[in-house]
Amino acid sequence: MSLLEVKGLKKHFPIKSGILKRTTGQVYAVDGVSFSVEKGETLGLVGESGCGKSTTGRAVLRLIAPTAGTIIFEGVDIMAASRAQMQTLRRDMQIIFQDPYASLNPRMRVRNIVGESLKIHNVGTEAERKKRVFELLEIVGLSTEHAERYPHEFSGGQRQRIGIARALALQPKLIICDEPVSALDVSIRAQVINLLEDLQDEFDLTYVFIAHDLSVVKHTSDRVAVMYLGKIVEISDSAVLYDRPQHPYTEALLSAVPIPDPHTERARRRIILEGDVPSPANPPKGCVFHPRCPRAQEDCTAAMPALVSTGGDAGERHEVACYFPARFKDGERSVAGEPFAGASPPASA
């Protein structure tokens, strides 16, 4: 059984206008996302701004109410959970935020920030909680003398550690890492990535790692899901995805990331996508990527292709939502001229 299973998750934000605040449209922030996360693994969610990756993370924790879909955590349907059940579930699911400045209450001492969830859930006595907070600070590489300080006395990297300690307090099983290193300097970024990796080994954590930086996601994740305009377009094992991307968007995304090695970098072929990401309030008909897709054909404008397994080389798990996915056989890459039948959505849809 997967630790987390998400099926058909949707989050639409109404656009309200006029003095009567009538709903005049929808922003399709997350539009039918399905994935599962196994215990102990890291699933990367990657995509450009506005692709819905952060919304997905928050919807999974029900920090925002999903519009539709099911979320099953350890066999329990979160969407059907009552307030009290949700309260218990929160102990097992935590989140680490992007902005180390906005994610800590500036008027609380570090010991209160880190220990708050212990207090909320009535864990232990005051003395035990204090001991646990000290322990947590040590775990994330801070010292106990930091406990009495306020967040503004710390640098960005240190604050991020405080945020991590807070998330660890109740020994959660799943942590959503929402761009945990994007706001940090390069040298600090590596510290935090290593810390997250160590914690995962030490405490058997499962991560959903949300980031826009593909190098970071590749480094941290076992599997990666690529999102575009509220949909997952490709999902597979991390190494496979980076080696043999099948979706044209994944290809373009990977080729756009500069590699910090001048010889390699200058020898690379780069796919430059034309134009900008369309507005999620008005996504293109058919495949959401077709207006920017170098491979787009008529079939692509009809309906969004389903996310289906295309069967990789060695039978690895590799799902892609494309009518013309790249195929790899004996190290040769090819793109079929005929639309991939498996990608057609069922007629009823």
């Binding site: 928050r58 924790l61 920090l63 949700m86 309260q87 929160r90 102990r91 699911m93 935590q94 989140i95 935020f97 992007q98 902005d99 906005a102 994610s103 800590l104 209450n105 708050e116 969830s117 909320i120 859930h121 945020g163 807070r166 307090a169 109740l170």
Partner: peptide, 14 residues
Amino acid sequence: AMEYVEAARAQGAS
């Protein structure tokens, strides 16, 4: 709208 408010919610704060 600050993230620390979201963080508190994520921890189950009332």
